[in-house]
Deep mutational scan, measured.
Amino acid sequence: MDVFMKGLSKAKEGVVAAAEKTKQGVAEAAGKTKEGVLYVGSKTKEGVVHGVATVAEKTKEQVTNVGGAVVTGVTAVAQKTVEGAGSIAAATGFVKKDQLGKNEEGAPQEGILEDMPVDPDNEAYEMPSEEGYQDYEPEA
Rank of each mutant, 00 (worst) to 15 (best):
M1H: 00
M1D: 03
D2V: 01
M5L: 02
M5Q: 01
M5S: 03
K6P: 00
K6R: 04
K6D: 06
L8M: 02
L8V: 03
S9H: 05
K10Y: 08
K10V: 11
A11W: 15
K12L: 06
G14K: 14
V16P: 01
V16M: 12
A17N: 13
A17S: 08
A17T: 01
A18H: 03
A19K: 03
A19Q: 02
E20Y: 14
K21H: 10
K21P: 00
T22F: 03
K23S: 14
K23R: 12
G25F: 13
G25Q: 13
V26Q: 00
A30K: 05
G31S: 14
G31E: 04
K32F: 15
T33S: 08
T33K: 04
K34R: 12
K34T: 05
E35Q: 06
G36R: 12
V37S: 01
V37G: 15
V37W: 13
L38Y: 09
L38S: 01
V40W: 00
G41V: 04
S42L: 05
K43W: 15
K43P: 00
T44L: 07
T44K: 01
T44E: 01
K45W: 15
E46G: 04
V48R: 02
V49N: 11
V49A: 10
H50I: 13
H50V: 06
H50W: 14
G51Q: 02
V52G: 02
V52S: 04
A53V: 10
A53T: 01
T54K: 07
V55Y: 02
A56L: 04
A56G: 02
A56P: 04
E57P: 03
K58T: 08
T59N: 05
T59G: 05
T59M: 14
Q62H: 07
Q62F: 12
T64Y: 15
T64W: 14
T64E: 03
N65L: 15
N65F: 14
N65R: 15
N65A: 09
A69N: 07
V70N: 02
V70L: 15
V70D: 03
V70Y: 05
V70S: 01
V71G: 03
T72F: 00
T72W: 05
G73A: 05
T75L: 13
T75G: 08
T75D: 04
T75K: 14
A76N: 01
A76H: 11
V77L: 12
V77F: 08
A78Q: 02
Q79D: 07
Q79R: 03
Q79G: 06
K80W: 13
K80I: 08
K80Y: 06
T81M: 11
T81S: 02
T81G: 07
V82R: 10
E83M: 14
E83A: 08
A85M: 10
A85V: 14
A85Y: 12
G86N: 07
G86A: 08
G86K: 06
S87R: 08
S87C: 04
I88Q: 05
I88D: 04
A91G: 13
T92W: 15
G93L: 04
F94E: 05
V95G: 02
K96H: 15
K97I: 15
K97C: 14
K97E: 09
D98M: 10
D98V: 12
Q99T: 09
L100S: 06
K102P: 13
N103V: 09
E104P: 06
E105Q: 13
E105N: 11
G106Y: 10
A107R: 06
A107D: 10
A107T: 12
P108K: 08
P108Q: 15
P108A: 06
P108M: 08
E110G: 04
E110I: 09
I112H: 14
E114S: 12
D115E: 09
V118Q: 15
V118Y: 05
V118K: 13
D119M: 04
D119A: 03
D119P: 11
P120K: 07
P120E: 09
D121G: 08
N122S: 10
N122C: 08
N122V: 10
E123K: 07
E123P: 01
A124N: 13
A124Q: 09
Y125Q: 08
Y125S: 12
E126Y: 08
E126I: 04
M127H: 14
M127D: 00
P128W: 02
S129I: 04
S129A: 09
E131I: 14
E131K: 06
G132V: 02
G132I: 11
G132F: 14
G132M: 15
Y133H: 02
Y133E: 06
Y133S: 02
Q134N: 09
Q134T: 12
D135R: 03
Y136H: 07
E137D: 09
P138E: 11
P138G: 11
E139Y: 01
E139I: 09
E139V: 08
